[in-house]
């Protein structure tokens, strides 16, 4: 994705000269289907682990 250049608010703080931006490779993998299928599974597993840590019987 390219940043729409004409929307840079000239004259205001130009935050994005000092921020981290993704490289073209990072951006490519964000929507690269084979990689995203794998990530779909990995993220689901991570989320299920968090859910499993959810609430507990009371321990006194």
């Amino acid at each position: 994705m390219t940043s729409p250049k004409s929307t840079r608010p000239m004259g205001r703080d130009e935050h994005w000269l000092t921020v981290t931006k993704p490289t073209a490779t990072t951006r490519f993998f964000r929507t690269f289907l084979p990689w995203q299928f794998i990530r779909f599974i990995v993220i689901n597993v991570k989320m299920v682990r968090i859910i499993a840590m959810g609430h507990h019987p009371k321990r006194s």
Binding site: P4, T7, H15, W16, P22
Partner: peptide
């Protein structure tokens, strides 16, 4: 902060 700023900057969103 780093990720959120990056996401906004990438999209040309000011904050």
């Amino acid at each position: 902060k780093i990720f959120t700023e990056s996401l906004f900057a990438e999209r040309g969103i000011d904050w």
